Amino acid sequence: MLATTTVSVSFSNGFVGDATKNNEASNSAYLTSLGWSNFQFVQTTNNGLFGGTQGNDYSGTILITDAANVQHRIDGVINWRAPSGNVSTMVFYATGASHTLATTTGTYFIDPYTETNGDPHSFIGLTFNGQTLAISGGKVTGNAATTGLLDTLNTYLANQPQLTVSDVTVNEDGGYATLTVALSKASTDTVTVKYTTQPGTATAGSDYTATSGTLTFSPGQTTKTVQIAITDDALAEGDETFSLVLSDSSFAAITDNTGVITIRDNDVTQSVTGISVGPAVTEGANLVYTVALNVPSPTPVELHPWPKRHGRRQRLRHADPR
């Protein structure tokens, strides 16, 4: 079983409209006609496939980039299919929060469904690449059956080139961590995917340089690399980790969206190697103690004495909380 991650597929078009009745949307428009792009369906998974736990109600997140280039994450449930014959489009009702998306002429309000009878809400359809959907008189109609639709979605996932990102371990003084982003097979389309670093026990700025961008695979290409600068500090921190996360692909699925980078620490843990007492002094004068460390400290160190009668020893502490 795989670790929990996310899996996503991309679509080149679809529709949005008002829920008139079951399996029918009115005032419908193609997503691209509104100036929208980069359509995705995303689910969390532990087996690399799409799934559902509530009968035929398959929930997930729809990603849409609006005409102002703002990405919206819209929760949704697959509710029906269009058209009534061979399926070309999965149709969702929006759930959760409402969303206002910029269009080429103004804005569009996506109204979530509260599952209360008569509640106005929005339908969003995602059309499989290579398929078409007809909108007639602003209406889209379809079939209530979702049986087999999950299998269709997973077949669509399997047929798309699939993006994965590697894990890597690097020494702190190695300079860079290099991760490979790979396509499972060559595509005849230009594939793009965004990436960004996310902190873990390692922190951007002090342990590595925050990095983000977009990878573009020209037709036929199957691998790209991302380099992330690693900071070689003088602190003994132990091994630390952070991640590179993939998102927002076009013309490809994402089946492993997280690459883990492990930084192996190269610094020696500081410790007290000896305490010596200075020459004898007369009563009332200060006795001098000299404390030796095994390695130089990059930050001030405080040594706090504790009463021996309490069973405690002297404690070494950096003034810097790290």
Score class of each variant (00 low, 15 high):
residue 196 T to V: 03
residue 242 F to N: 03
residue 39 F to G: 01
residue 228 I to N: 03
residue 293 L to G: 10
residue 52 G to L: 12
residue 46 N to C: 06
residue 232 D to A: 11
residue 134 A to D: 11
residue 298 P to I: 14
residue 285 A to L: 13
residue 135 I to G: 04
residue 179 L to W: 10
residue 320 D to W: 13
residue 297 S to N: 13
residue 193 V to F: 10
residue 248 D to Q: 10
residue 219 P to H: 11
residue 91 V to Y: 07
residue 102 A to D: 08
residue 233 D to Y: 04
residue 150 L to W: 01
residue 205 G to M: 09
residue 192 T to A: 07
residue 232 D to N: 13
residue 62 I to W: 00
residue 208 Y to N: 01
residue 45 T to M: 07
residue 195 Y to A: 02
residue 263 I to N: 06
residue 173 D to A: 15
residue 295 V to P: 00
residue 313 R to H: 12
residue 313 R to C: 07
residue 275 I to D: 02
residue 53 T to A: 15
residue 262 T to Y: 03
residue 52 G to D: 09
residue 318 H to R: 13
residue 314 Q to M: 13
residue 129 N to M: 07
residue 191 V to Q: 05
residue 261 I to T: 05
residue 3 A to D: 10
residue 286 N to P: 01
residue 245 V to S: 04
residue 62 I to L: 00
residue 265 D to Y: 09
residue 98 S to K: 08
residue 61 T to C: 13
residue 293 L to R: 12
residue 175 G to H: 04
residue 287 L to F: 09
residue 317 R to L: 12
residue 248 D to S: 06
residue 141 T to M: 03
residue 73 R to G: 11
residue 166 S to C: 03
residue 216 T to L: 04
residue 279 P to E: 15
residue 79 N to C: 06
residue 121 H to N: 08
residue 21 K to E: 14
residue 81 R to G: 08
residue 111 D to Q: 10
residue 300 P to W: 09
residue 102 A to W: 01
residue 192 T to S: 06
residue 116 T to G: 09
residue 16 V to P: 10
residue 318 H to D: 12
residue 156 Y to Q: 05
residue 290 T to F: 11
residue 247 S to V: 00
residue 181 V to K: 04
residue 31 L to K: 02
residue 127 T to R: 02
residue 242 F to E: 03
residue 149 L to F: 06
residue 312 R to H: 12
residue 238 G to N: 04
residue 308 K to S: 15
residue 257 N to E: 11
residue 180 T to I: 08
residue 4 T to C: 04
residue 286 N to D: 15
residue 61 T to S: 14
residue 46 N to K: 12
residue 234 A to W: 02
residue 170 V to A: 14
residue 224 K to Y: 01
residue 52 G to F: 09
residue 318 H to Q: 09
residue 136 S to P: 00
residue 116 T to M: 07
residue 304 H to C: 08
residue 304 H to Y: 11
residue 149 L to A: 11
residue 60 G to V: 02
residue 160 Q to M: 13
residue 258 T to R: 11
residue 199 P to G: 14
residue 130 G to F: 02
residue 276 S to Q: 08
residue 62 I to M: 00
